[in-house]
């Protein structure tokens, strides 16, 4: 059903040089939904996001966004498609040499010929949506981590994208900012009629807000289902992940020779 899925990842394999990062990934994101891709650090989540955004190309398989194979687009077509995508980077990635307002207005100025007065209204509207209209004239260095993330969020929805991607949106935030961001992701998705992909390892927050979860481990999709299914699942590695147990299928210790031997060896 190509029509109801905005993003389809089909049998994708990807490796950086020798190191294989993704193995035969299959994944679909239905229109209008918020889907989480979860997993441990370094399991290839961010890579998957970059493949969907077209920043990387798969070695094998196909990534389709809105029915178009990303890896077969020309640069111009890819850029045209990206105008309909928004991405929130891990630490916001605000342009440090521009004020919050100019950050939000950036895409409007680059991609449209709107008059400055209209851009001002639109940008203030986006800032209002994340509650930071009052911080329009502040520079990124004057914003707290949570505020910077919200400005970046306002920037990524500047052109009302059809697909929103969040790369670890919760990293390094205090509980209040974390809750605010979580709520915004849900609210913006529903009010914009967009589709969202959230890459995260923050289980508790993600399970609250998303519709569907893909759980990845060592470059493979281990499990997928609704949040309730995830909680109920008996998969040991998933259990360990969801409940944050220090030892389990993912060992606490990095592989090493036996401790006693190491101590005795001189």
């Amino acid at each position: 059903m190509a029509t109801s899925n905005l993003v389809e990842v089909e049998d994708v394999t990807f490796s950086y040089d020798e190191r294989q990062v993704l193995k035969n990934i299959n994944l679909v994101v239905p229109k209008g939904r918020v889907v989480a891709i979860m997993g441990l650090s370094g399991c290839g989540k961010t890579t998957l996001l970059r493949l969907i955004g077209g920043a990387l190309r798969p070695n094998h398989g196909e990534v389709r966004v809105a029915g178009r194979a990303i890896n077969r687009l020309s640069d111009d077509e890819l850029f045209a498609l990206r105008r309909k995508m928004g991405m929130l980077f891990q630490f916001g990635a605000l342009f440090t040499d521009m004020s919050s307002f100019d950050n939000v207005a950036f895409q409007m100025r680059e991609h449209t010929n709107l008059p400055e007065s209209l851009i001002r209204d639109l940008a203030l509207m986006k800032l209002q949506a994340v509650g930071l209209r009052g911080a329009a004239d502040l520079m990124p260095s004057e914003l707290s981590g949570g505020m910077a993330r919200r400005v970046a969020l306002a920037r990524s929805i500047a052109l009302d994208p059809m697909l929103m991607m969040y790369d670890e949106p919760f990293t390094g935030l205090d509980p209040i900012s974390l809750g605010v961001i979580g709520q915004l992701i849900r609210r913006l998705n529903d009010s914009l009629g967009a589709t969202s992909i959230v890459v995260t390892h923050d289980v508790a927050e993600a399970l609250e807000l998303v519709d569907y979860v893909y759980y990845m481990s060592t470059g493979k999709v281990e499990f997928h289902g609704t949040p309730d299914q995830i909680r109920a699942a008996g998969l040991p590695s998933l259990r360990q992940f969801v409940y944050g147990e220090p030892d389990g299928p993912v060992p606490f210790h990095y592989p090493a020779p036996e401790y006693r031997q190491d101590l005795l060896a001189q």
Binding site: G53, A55, R82, M85, M87, F89, Q90, A93, F95, T96
Partner: peptide
């Protein structure tokens, strides 16, 4: 620094070529 803080990657995702901009 723009590269290290992903500003260039963000720009690229906004369909703006960092080399041009």
């Amino acid at each position: 620094l723009m590269k290290a803080t992903e500003q260039l990657a963000a720009m690229e995702m906004m369909a703006v070529d960092p080399i041009a901009r």
